[in-house]
Design a protein around this nucleic acid. Structure first.
Lengths: 373, 373
DNA sequence: CTGAAAGCGCTTACAG
DNA sequence: CTGAAAGCGCTTACAG
């Protein structure tokens, strides 16, 4: 994309590629500036390279590079001279070149199911905070729980030469990935995968807290709703069953595709069938919402007709009437820890696998008031 | 980071940089595979380059490159031969090198205030969908409404040689950026900035709809809550004032830092002062939430004591009792349009500025029922 | 349609 | 502490 001074027209508009503005095009003379589309003056002069800084400071490329990257041994005065020249020229490093040469991309990948899920939103924010703090870029991808997309993005990560990937895999990811090799370590969040490092909610503890709380408040017939598309649904299911057994109670668990609609449908049918439990635990934000809708839709009262609790302290759970008892996940902490583990794994690849289980917080609200009947 | 076959130890652990795993290190012989930390076998052989593909297929680098990038003229049979060789070797392009040489990063930047704001979450999801569909990467940054961070990330975008940036600037961004030149076009979302292209809600229409609806339902003394940190707060304020005037009513607007706490505080004081309006319009999701909390906290009934409406159809607005009347923003459409405009601007830099205003949808719920008193 | 050669902007042993 | 030189992996005029 190149402009001429007089006509302000693009000389090579026929490309359908994105290219950095201001890039020089062989054979075309670049002419200084004009007011651009975006309202800021955009310089059309050649971007200064390290070579220009070397020339301006009377030093060699090598020395300038060392001064700029701040990692070689450089005399302090020399360094200042380089910095001054770079500043004067408005030098900005070309990250593409730096990465190619140094083989360090300073980039990690983050593959989540859907960034619109508040859990992943919070986690990814934590990861980005930690990454940018260390000068690392994050490439965010949404897999939509689709194994094909997962595989595609994982391949993309290879091409991007990322240093590592943080990933919330589907249950099928293991199979899809089997046989593939990666040049980077993988940390999974929320869900386990193979023997990759993993950081997630302490599901066992969380379900214990939930069941204990309901039992303490007088509920005995406690049902559970668990997703069947991820390792997490399985883990929470198992934890629920064992907590129930610990209390000498009979578990009544239903597995489902963890969407709001599926939960609403399933809970609706459950209620209609006449064998509804006294209390219901939903294993994530979406199924909790679906369950609540089904209950409301039938005009039943919470908790008088059926108590309701779940996992994920989403904003709405506190605002509805009655407010819902939930386990709040340490979302920010999960992201932050995943990032820390990734950095650790990059520097110490031979470490044995580690699984970090972070405690959730039981937030008691009105939807599980002590049973009166 | 290099392993030896026997010890499985890292030979160069002293670095604090991220580097792609499997990268060759000059002077160290890389030895084939072992079971890695992450449970997948990771090949330690040299990654094949375009050169290896050329050797394997008996063709030149140039031809291989053309066949692989699919843009030069290449004989179909030749192309197949190259593709087969690449496949056999497990060749993956090095994006760093490609970008350096071609000066096309196939990357755009996205700078939002905070990805945890559901509005930005939805918008960014749309942008990412569109981008990955076209093989473009997205670099996501959170500015936290901090002009210093905005400037920093904008500079980062330069270094990344992005093709363009989509941006939700603060009011101060204009001043902070003044004098700086960018090598890429800027599209702003939600808020205007200088004369950059902009795509946002049709604020005028939105406030018209809101005020018209309230007036039609019998409310006259209608108050408004507007943010004072972005151009959008200003735009909505002005639209509110003019809509009120159109109805011959007296506007009563308050400006504030658009956070939940600030809104709760301000509305609380307003209610306590005794001159509370009959209906209140909050200009975004956070202030709407704060307003609702203040009203509830004082035990007032919605809409009997005070009606409430706002902008942003967040999940909770439908779930609270009573459900809140809101303008739903076309969030996905905003992101998608921004992306389209950016691509357009990249290919046609000389186009005059364009501002796209997208219509929101008035979603009438119980919080603005016809006034009975 | 294909190949030889230059070069994108950097970093990094190597030698002083 | 500094410089000369090689080279990261690719693309792209240029010439055939």
């Amino acid at each position: 994309m190149v402009y001429t001074a007089d006509k302000r027209r693009c000389l090579t508009p026929e490309t359908d590629k994105i290219q950095p503005y201001g890039a020089s095009q062989a054979g075309v003379t670049l002419i200084d500036l004009q007011k651009t589309f975006s309202g800021f003056y955009r310089s059309m002069v050649m971007k200064p390279s390290i070579k220009d800084v070397a020339a301006a400071s009377g030093l060699s490329l090598a020395t300038v590079s060392r001064a700029l990257t701040d990692n070689g041994l450089v005399n302090e005065q020399t360094r200042q001279k380089v910095l001054a020249a770079a500043e004067a020229l408005g030098y900005r490093p070309n990250l593409q070149a730096r990465r190619l040469r140094s083989k360090q991309s300073q980039t990690i990948g983050l593959i989540v199911a859907d960034i619109r899920n508040p859990f992943f939103t919070a986690v990814s924010r934590a990861i980005e905070d930690a990454a940018y703090r260390e000068g690392i870029r994050v490439l965010l991808c949404n897999s939509d729980e689709d194994p094909a997309k997962e595989a595609m993005y994982l391949r993309l990560m290879q091409e991007e030469q990322v240093g590592g990937v943080i990933f919330s895999p589907t249950l099928s990811a293991g199979a899809a990935i089997a046989g593939t090799t990666f040049d980077f370590p993988l940390i999974t969040i929320d869900r386990a995968l193979g023997d990759a490092d993993c950081v997630a909610l302490n599901n066992h503890e969380a379900l214990d807290k939930l069941v204990d709380h309901l039992v303490a408040n007088g509920y005995r017939r406690i049902g559970g709703l668990f997703g069947n598309t991820s390792a997490t649904g399985q883990a929470r299911h198992d934890a629920y069953v064992s907590a129930m057994h610990r209390h000498g109670l009979t578990p009544d668990a239903r597995r489902l595709v963890p969407t709001m609609d599926a939960a609403q449908q399933l809970v609706g049918d459950w209620l209609d069938a006449g064998d509804a439990p006294e209390a219901l635990i939903a294993s994530n934000g979406l199924t909790l919402l679906g369950a609540m809708r089904a209950i409301r839709q039938r005009g039943l009262r919470i908790p008088d007709d059926i108590a309701l609790a779940g996992i994920d302290n989403e904003a709405w759970t506190e605002l509805v009437e009655p407010a819902l008892t939930v386990i709040g996940q340490p979302t920010y902490d999960i992201g932050d820890t995943a990032m820390r583990m990734l950095m650790n794994r990059i520097h110490e690849p031979a470490l044995s696998r580690r699984v970090v289980a972070l405690s959730g917080e039981l937030i008691v609200r009105d939807s599980t008031r002590p049973r009166t009947a």
